[in-house]
Design a protein around this nucleic acid. Sequence first.
RNA 1: GCGCUCGUAGCUCAGUCGGAUAGAGCGGCAGCCUCCUAAGCUGUAGGCCACAGGUUCGAUUCCUGUCGGGCGCACCA
Length: 549
Amino acid sequence: MRAINTLRTAFADILKENGFDWPEKTVIEPPRNPKFGDLSINAAILLAKNPHELAQKFAARLLVRCPDIQKAEAAGPGFCNVTFAPAFWQRIVPDIESAGDAYGNCAVGQGRRVLLEYVSANPTGPLHVGHGRGAAVGDSLCRLLRRTGYHVDSEYYINDAGNQMRMLGLSVWLRVLEKTGRDVTWPDEYYRGDYIVDIAQKLLAADPTLADCPEAEGLERCRTYAVKEILDGIREDLCAFRVEHLYWFSEKSLLDHEHHAVNTVLAALTAAGYTYTEENAFWFATEKLGDDKNRVLKKSDGSLTYFATDIAYHHNKFQRGYDSLIDVWGTDHHGYIHRLRAAISAMGQPRDRFHVVQIQLVNLLRDRKPVGMSTRAGTFETLAQVVQEVGVDAARFMFLSRKSDSPLDFDLELVKQRTLDNPVYYVQYAHARICAVLRRAEETGITLPHPVTEALLAPLDTVEDSALLRKADSFENTLRAAATLLSPQYVSYYLMELAGLLHSYYAKHQVLAPDNMPRTLARMALLRAVGQVLRNGLDILGVSAPDTM
RNA sequence: GCGCUCGUAGCUCAGUCGGAUAGAGCGGCAGCCUCCUAAGCUGUAGGCCACAGGUUCGAUUCCUGUCGGGCGCACCA
């Protein structure tokens, strides 16, 4: 960011001197191919029209304007390539040192309030791997957005109303009856998992006479207890996965009291002229707002649809004062986006205040062969089991190194391997190596001052030095891009690249060389700074940065 | 049938919302520990970015169409 800011200021000044406005399509960024230089200005329209005169002139002025620039030359249509002097890059090290854990943070979010809702799995059973992916992405986005200047609250929406809950209560109740020797006829649909049996057993242990109470009461007690028990389990699994939600929002709370939140919202939609009654059902004319068909809010039997409560829920979120809402959903709900978007417009909210991050399916594999992903319990399909087998770090990194909306093959054997198919070790190893060198230095009595002075950094003048420094400088830029596009994988890829440069550096340059103390100290300072960047990046992913491996 | 989405090296995938000669890793081949952690490094081979048109100075990126995957199309939640 230091580099980009410097260049932007200089370029803007030169434009002003010459009576130009900042060209609309101007990009300042590192060129893909480093041989072009450290940074490129691509003032597409302005320079492309006149590459030889204007571009050359700007290049020449840049050199005068900014003493840190070593070389500036017009190249290709619209491009002006710039190379900075080593001393310029060396100043990144004190930048990193003074910012510390906050290095890379920025204020693009301008303190806007964001509510990030993720996981929100129905409390009808334990979390599976797919939920784990959503959890990793949601949590990482939360960390990322906080570092880029947003005020983020995280929330879990508990679907504790409706048919599924009734079915859950029934499933437990029938197990209770079965355990106490009564004849039970099982309906077609009920939850069959072992955890249901466990819950029934716990209930019976607490109250052996449970089966004797009237059916209505028994069902209610089973339902309430089961939801609590399962939610506790979910909370535990999330906690073990380093995921924590600030709020747990109950769907049922939207239906409490006679004049509940859902009715209020439906009344508002009616007042705005969006609803009508047809065939005894109450409809929302979402077609007017970009949906492909109209949707039912209240069924002909008088009960509310899930859509109706969901509208009330999102209304509630805006009521709480959030500037923007981010929902992390499985792609199996993508058909739902249009109608919710329609509802949000109907509430008078701009559409760009509502974002959905879609999470594609996770295919769990072992040795390239699919592991049973059906509703059958037992095999490796719960998040807890997978985490226990491969570890939190490896699982999270795997989830966060892909676009979240494309399907992911999660091969248990590969994720346990220590190859770059599983790059988490590659990145962590870079950090551990840095720590090892700094530890060794300390043991041999070399102390590096903190903070370091610019003079101390002068020996960092090789191409590998400036490659590392350039990369460290672009960290903030990466975080901005990742936050804007809600794409944590940018951070993962950045870290792999930074780790790659560090490993090359390590192989090529001896850091600790007692016969050359100035160079040793400079390189130690560089490593310490790179270690800080690695830690900050891993923190965004929620992955640990070990000192030793 | 309609809607959304994806198609990039043999395999698994990136590609910062139109920019230069499209990048990693794995797998293949050839090398590197008397030296701070070899979970590492170096070199090399491998591409008509599914296909065909269009938009413009310029397209893997945007638009249209075709082919081929995935996912949705409830008065379920």
